[in-house]
């Protein structure tokens, strides 16, 4: 027991639920997985580089500076970013333009979009968050001015909590997270495409975040074995069942 290796994990909060799934299902017991508080993707990379972490979770493409660090990147899955509304909104489909307009503050009430008479509550993330980056990349566009009424939330759970508990709220978050925790929200089809694993795998749903981990090139065998297992068919099938889209 005392000889068990301790592997410290942290980084992107988006990745953590998936990593938990993987470490929980990993059959080998030689490693004790220790999750440290969330540090976002950049923190995870810096942690591995400084040797404070064995595994750093990353939910975006590595930057040039990060690539320069010489760390190993292992892609695990693609996570769809789902746009969701409070069930009271009762809309199941929005166009990219509609979403852009909502976030731009063009609408004040869902009735203006054919929904019930409910004021729209816009929930947003900070610009440096991976989710917001992906959102701007695929939906909002890089130069869209976000309405002043929108509220930026720091953590994805807060976003999910806000959307699910506030009548008339709209937000976006991890499809895998949403599916695996069964959040009571309405996933909105974007431009007619349902945010599903099949659509993601087929490439039809493009709002996707790459989920992966960085490790030190001289990581322990145990960590390397875990990473090898995580890309195995068994692990992939397990991720797929939980709303993630494992890499091919």
């Amino acid at each position: 027991m005392t000889s068990r290796e301790v592997a410290r994990l942290s980084g992107s909060g988006t990745c953590i639920p998936m990593l938990r799934l993987l470490t929980g299902a990993y059959p080998a017991r030689e490693v004790e997985w220790r999750y440290l508080p969330g540090l976002h993707s950049g923190g995870g990379v810096q942690g591995v580089a400084s040797g404070d972490l064995e595994v750093g979770a990353v939910s975006r493409e590595l930057t040039d500076d990060e690539l320069a660090l010489g760390l190993d990147y292992t892609a695990l899955a693609d996570d769809g970013l789902v746009i969701a509304v409070h069930p009271s909104v009762m809309l199941h489909e929005l166009t990219t333009q509609q979403v852009k307009d909502i976030y731009a503050g063009a609408y004040a009430n869902w009735s203006e979009l054919g929904g019930p008479d409910l004021p729209i509550t816009i929930l947003d993330r900070n610009e440096d968050e991976s989710a917001k980056i992906i959102m701007r990349t695929f939906v909002l566009g890089s130069d869209l001015a976000i309405s002043s009424k929108a509220v930026s939330l720091y953590y994805e759970p807060d976003m999910i909590q806000g959307v699910s508990s506030t009548a008339g709220a709209i937000g976006y978050f991890s499809l895998g997270y949403s599916i695996s925790t069964d959040v009571p929200v309405t996933h909105v089809a974007l431009d007619g495409v349902e945010p599903s694993v099949e659509n993601i795998l087929s490439g039809a749903y493009r709002v996707v975040r790459p989920l992966g981990v960085v490790t030190s090139p001289d990581a322990s065998d145990d960590v390397k074995a875990f990473l090898a297992w995580s890309t195995s068919d068994e692990a992939r099938e397990m991720l797929r069942a939980n709303g993630y889209s494992p890499v091919r």
């Binding site: 004021p119 509550t121 816009i122 002043s148 509220v151 806000g162 506030t166």
Partner: peptide
């Protein structure tokens, strides 16, 4: 909308 967002 702002009230609601602030509350969240």
């Amino acid at each position: 909308s702002t009230v609601s967002g602030q509350l969240v």
